[in-house]
Every structure is written in structure tokens, then in C-alpha cells.
């Protein structure tokens, strides 16, 4: 009996370990999104000068990253355990989560197709992108301390 418990724990351990890479990868993607958005936010907040070329570069990179998000590959069932802030709600409501991803893809595609040429035009673009980040984080992410 004890052996059986140990075996089960080992399997649990092994699956958690297997998801470690998936989790690390999806977090790296998110961090990278944050970096690109950071370039834009700094301009909006007046910490950096408006630079159309940098805006275009950041939006292009962000959009490439976002279009590559594959929910099935990056959020397999069970990967809410481990070093992650993904909420179990993702797996309780996969369709809702997918809808947030689709919205995110649409918003970044639209911005990348027409990168802002002025600070005034950048503000609503950044606001729309920020809205899609927080809308998903509101429901599908949870800080665990």
C-alpha cells in the first residue's frame, strides 16, 4: 500500500515536472509581451519620447508573439499546479479563456496593422491593448503569494 502511494506521488511529481517547461515557456511569452508593451507605455507616460519606428517594432514583435499563442499546447489540463499564477478557472471555462485569447489576437493584429504615427494616436492603442491584458488577468489569473 505504502509503495503504491509512493508510486502515485512519483507520477504526480513527474507530471508536475513535465509541466514545469510548459509553464516556464508561457510565462516567458507573457514577460516578453510585457517588455514590448513597456516600450509603448513609457512613451504614453512621457518617460520616453515618441518614436514611430520603435512603436512599429514593438507592435510587430508583440503581435507575432500573440498570434503564436496556442491554448491547447501552452495550457494543458493539470498545468494550474506548480510555479504558476494561472487560475483553475482556465480549465473550468476553456471557451471563455479562448475568447479572451481571440480578443487579444484581434486587438494586437489591429494595432500592428496600423501602428500609431503620433503620441495622440498611440494612447488609444495602448489603452485597448491594456484593456485586453487586464480583462483576461481579471478572471484567469490569480496571485498565490
Amino acid at each position: 500500500m505504502k509503495k503504491f502511494v509512493i508510486a502515485v506521488s512519483a507520477i504526480a511529481l513527474a507530471t508536475t515536472a513535465a509541466f514545469a517547461d510548459v509553464i516556464a515557456d508561457r510565462k516567458a511569452v507573457m514577460k516578453e509581451n510585457g517588455r514590448q508593451v513597456g516600450v509603448l507605455v513609457k512613451m504614453v507616460q512621457g518617460e520616453a519620447d515618441f518614436d514611430a519606428a520603435a512603436v512599429m517594432a514593438a507592435l510587430t514583435k508583440l503581435n507575432e508573439n500573440v498570434q503564436a499563442i496556442d491554448v491547447a499546447a501552452s495550457f494543458p489540463p493539470g498545468s494550474d499546479k506548480g510555479d504558476t499564477t494561472a487560475s483553475p478557472k482556465i480549465w473550468e471555462d476553456m471557451a471563455g479563456f479562448q475568447a479572451e485569447v481571440d480578443k487579444f489576437k484581434a486587438v494586437t493584429a489591429e494595432a500592428a496593422a496600423a501602428p500609431a504615427q503620433s503620441l495622440e494616436a498611440l494612447k488609444p492603442q495602448v489603452a485597448a491593448i491594456g484593456q485586453s491584458c487586464s480583462s483576461c488577468h481579471e478572471t484567469y489569473r490569480i496571485k498565490k503569494g
Binding site: 510585457g34 517588455r35 508593451v37 513597456g38 507605455v41 504614453v44 507616460q45 495602448v126 491594456g130 491584458c133 487586464s134 488577468h137 481579471e138 489569473r141 490569480i142 496571485k143
Partner: peptide, 13 residues
């Protein structure tokens, strides 16, 4: 703006 200093986005409640 809803962005943290390292450009994470606000979440939850």
C-alpha cells in the same frame, strides 16, 4: 494605466 513597473498587467478584483 494598470501596468506594474515591470509591465505586468493588473488582474483579479
Amino acid at each position: 494605466t494598470g501596468f506594474t513597473p515591470d509591465f505586468d498587467s493588473v488582474g483579479g478584483s
